[in-house]
Computed example of a mutant assay.
Amino acid sequence: MKLYYSPGACSLSPHIALHEAGLAFELVMASTKSHKLQDGTDYYGINPLGYVPLLELDDGAHLREGPAILQYIADLSPQKNLAPANGTLQRYRLQEWLTFIGTEIHKGFSPLFNPATPDAYKTIARDKLTSRYTWLDKELAGKEWLMGEHFGVADGYLFTVTNWAKPTGVDLAPFPNVQAWHARVGARPAVQAAMKAEGLLK
């Protein structure tokens, strides 16, 4: 398998999942600015949408969209407990989390990265994210991981987008449960390995 990624982007999430799952894969950097690979290949020729992540399977098939890729990776290594079994209520709980993270947190950060976003709208975006982290802090009270006793792919996804809080000026200081959870995820060997491979950790 090949994972097309950009350092620190949302593609860090499946990168973490691949390490957690113990699967063999090749990492291919695709710049989100130039939309070219390191050898000059036009990334639009691989993914017409131009963004990461994209997972290329061994048979050449492509999977786009982080939440779909995460569940695919988890299902390849069910013994790792990265996702509940298909067809169970807990699997739908995972999809509930992945949807919330994608639409309410991930997309909430997007305008803060866009230089063209007016400052007034950035304030609105930060306020909305603060309200979502207020809710998340309550959800994480007394829990080690988002879905209980097992680290799962939703934890890796939320960790990835929560890393964007500091560079975009979203203050997480009022949220001790979020901060403690974020530190637990960041200490995991698979998370450290993925971040080192992307040049995010020395």
Rank of each mutant, 00 (worst) to 15 (best):
P174G: 13
P67N: 05
R91F: 09
R132K: 14
Y133M: 07
W97H: 05
L129W: 04
K138R: 15
E139F: 09
I46A: 09
Q79M: 13
D75K: 12
I101C: 05
V178A: 10
V28E: 02
G169A: 12
L82P: 01
S31M: 00
Y44D: 11
Y51N: 10
P176T: 12
N86M: 10
E198P: 00
G142R: 06
M29I: 03
T103Q: 06
C10W: 02
F159D: 00
I124T: 13
I124K: 11
H150C: 06
I105R: 03
D59C: 00
L94A: 09
L55Y: 04
A21P: 04
G169H: 12
P115E: 11
K122T: 07
D171V: 12
E65H: 14
E65Q: 15
G50F: 07
G169V: 14
L201I: 14
K107S: 05
E149W: 00
T103E: 04
H19I: 04
L89N: 09
H62G: 07
T130Q: 15
W164L: 03
Q71Y: 08
L94N: 08
R91D: 07
Q71S: 08
T134I: 08
S11K: 08
A120Y: 05
G156Q: 00
W181C: 01
T134P: 06
E65C: 10
A83M: 08
Q90D: 11
E198K: 01
H19T: 04
L136M: 14
H150K: 08
L172W: 12
F175A: 09
P176K: 11
K122R: 15
R188W: 02
K36Y: 05
S34D: 10
Y133V: 08
I69G: 10
L146F: 01
F109K: 06
P67G: 02
R132T: 13
I16A: 05
G152V: 02
A30H: 02
K143R: 15
M29E: 13
P176V: 09
N177W: 04
G60I: 08
N81E: 13
Y44L: 15
K107N: 07
K80R: 14
G45M: 12
L146D: 01
V178E: 05
A61Y: 07
W164S: 05
T103K: 02
G66F: 01
I124V: 15
G186D: 02
N47K: 06
R64M: 15
E104Y: 04
P14H: 09
V52S: 00
I105D: 03
S34A: 11
